[in-house]
Amino acid sequence: MPCFIFVEPSSDGWIVRGDLSGGPLKFATGARAEQAARDLAHRLADAGEPVVLEIRLRDGARAGRFLFPSHGAQTGAALARRA
């Protein structure tokens, strides 16, 4: 079962939420939130956990959905795939 991560607007910026311990992460800009979410997704994929990352726009519409397949001990980083 993949881990789900969402980047979405909040009242005072942007949040990264999902199957994370410690609650949502808050950011001032969408770009920073998206980069943090992608970094997290890569780390989880490196650890062997498949990840689905979904990014939302200010109006709530989906901007993108990406799959980060688990690659654990494999050499080289797997690229995210648009889902």
Rank of each mutant, 00 (worst) to 15 (best):
S21V: 13
E8R: 09
P9R: 14
I15T: 14
G22F: 10
A41S: 13
A36P: 05
D19S: 04
H42T: 13
T29I: 05
A28L: 12
R56P: 00
A37F: 12
I15K: 15
S10Q: 15
F6P: 00
E54N: 00
G22D: 07
R43D: 12
K26A: 14
L53W: 03
S10A: 15
D19T: 00
G30M: 07
A47N: 11
G30F: 04
E8T: 05
A37N: 11
E54P: 01
D12R: 15
W14I: 06
S21Y: 09
L53A: 02
S11G: 15
C3P: 00
G22R: 10
A45S: 12
E8F: 03
A28P: 08
E34F: 03
D59C: 04
A45C: 08
F6Y: 13
D59I: 01
F4K: 01
P9V: 12
L53F: 02
L40G: 02
K26T: 13
G13T: 10
H42Q: 14
V52D: 08
T29A: 04
F6N: 08
P50C: 03
A36F: 07
G30W: 06
I15E: 15
A36L: 04
D59K: 06
L20Q: 01
G13I: 13
E49W: 07
K26P: 07
D19Q: 05
A28W: 05
I5L: 07
A61G: 09
V16T: 13
A31Q: 12
E34A: 13
A41N: 04
R17E: 07
S11W: 13
P24N: 08
G18A: 05
